[in-house]
Design a protein around this nucleic acid. Structure first.
Lengths: 255, 255
DNA sequence: ACCTGAACACCGTTCAAGT
DNA sequence: ACCTGAACACCGTTCAAGT
């Protein structure tokens, strides 16, 4: 009898035995000190696997990101992939960390910290919207990966430079990232920028019981027209305004 | 030859043909005007399917939420489930809308709108943390479901009452929900409240190249100790502070 | 030492055949 | 009219056997 397969998902008791779970700090650490088997010239390489996976993800979506399809794209067998990644979860964790590195465009030079943060957030959002497969795979397990850490270092510099303590700067940076990623994911392929979806939302709101849902009924037209762009901009500006208040507060109590 | 199966995921071109996708406004609308086949007394009912699914999700996690397991729990065949839901995606959409209805506890009476919003956000977060399987299934496709709409109506009332326009109130409500859900999902089973994870993060940060990651190295200890609670509270307060500024702004320009 | 073929134990979904 | 058994076309993962 074999061990039953477990596609480690959220909500079940952690595996607990054996090697650390992909995405944990221990796992990211262990990856670096591994024997560098990459050295020997190989036809099949982790880089190549990630390249093929990314191409698959972008062209055919997350459902097409299977070990079989990756192997086929590379002209090897599925089993060969398992010499480079322990399982699919590892592949995904490595992939999303890599995919998260946004084309580093020149930062807006004249802007203050808030302007830079807003600019980076919008850049990140646009990047994710161009790669919806990547967005849907982000789980937070990539936050300790090399590319993500570069982003963290940058954001820390921004917020510490603005006057926040390292602890608050870290919390601010990750709550901003959480918001950006969440707002993309929550509107994937279901945006009221689509006129037909807008039309149906109007009907849906308008047809509610007016006693139980007075506001939905009354403002059906307005509400149906609120797009994911509106949500994003309102949330982004609110967060930055809140951070600004936090900074002013820190300065006030320091004096 | 059969149609190849498609597990409609993010990132691929939408199916486009046939019935509306689960979660769209059109789909939620269509569900209501369906012939009420539920009337006739049945052994197998949608309610029952959702009950069994929820029990499965809570007890064994998201990976165990399969059509086979649901059928087994109910003592029927998989095929029977398909009389009540068109596919698994539908089941999930209905399930998460239902699971999102938080035990309505008495609202804090003395509090202002911000206090109430904060209280509701924390209640929602705690609810999701107790049901991580539910949290991991939230995709935004439940936002038009009956239970979610109740929450939307409530939040709209709160923010409109505070002085926001319906449009801004809607954007504020959904960006707050996005943040709460995102912050839970991003820390599922990977929280630095775990002392061992904290220990490894310290090591990870400390071992970075100090030239490329000066802040991570310098503040390794502090950063490793930032928990998901810290992130959540900082983000929540920032959002509410930002909303307050938005309200004051609206009042100022009205005068 | 490395890679493969072939299998195992699962999935979601469909549909002819039963009652 | 309703439900089922059995299949189809997929999954991720493992491992004995090859080279």
């Amino acid at each position: 009898m074999r061990e039953p397969m477990t596609t480690a998902g959220a909500g079940e008791p952690p595996p607990e035995q054996g090697e650390p779970r992909p995405g944990t700090a221990a796992w990211w650490l262990a990856r670096e000190t591994e024997p560098a088997r990459q050295r020997r010239r190989r036809s099949l390489t982790l880089e190549g696997i990630l390249d093929a996976s990314m191409a698959l993800l972008d062209s055919r979506g997350v459902a097409a990101l299977t070990m079989r399809n990756v192997a086929e794209a590379l002209g090897c067998t599925q089993a060969s992939l398992y010499r480079h990644v322990r399982n699919r979860e590892e592949l995904v964790t490595l992939l999303v960390d890599r995919a998260v590195s946004v084309a580093s465009s020149p930062p807006p030079d004249g802007a203050d910290w808030a302007g830079k943060a807003a600019w980076s957030a919008r850049l990140f959002r646009d990047h994710l919207r161009r790669h919806p497969g990547v967005a849907s795979l982000l789980r937070g397990t990539e936050r300790l990966g090399p590319n993500s850490l570069t982003g963290v270092e940058y954001a820390l510099g921004l917020f510490i430079g603005a006057g926040l303590s390292p602890r608050l700067a870290s919390a601010a940076a990750s709550s901003l990232a959480t918001f950006v990623i969440g707002s993309v994911n929550f509107n994937l392929g279901l945006d009221s920028r689509d006129p037909e979806e807008r039309h149906h939302r109007r009907r849906l709101y308008r047809s509610r019981d007016a006693a139980a849902f007075p506001l939905l009924v009354q403002h059906a037209e307005t509400l149906a027209d609120v797009t994911s762009d509106d949500e994003f901009e309102v949330g982004l500006n609110a967060l930055l305004t809140g951070f600004r208040a936090l900074i002013e507060n820190a300065e006030a109590t320091r004096d």
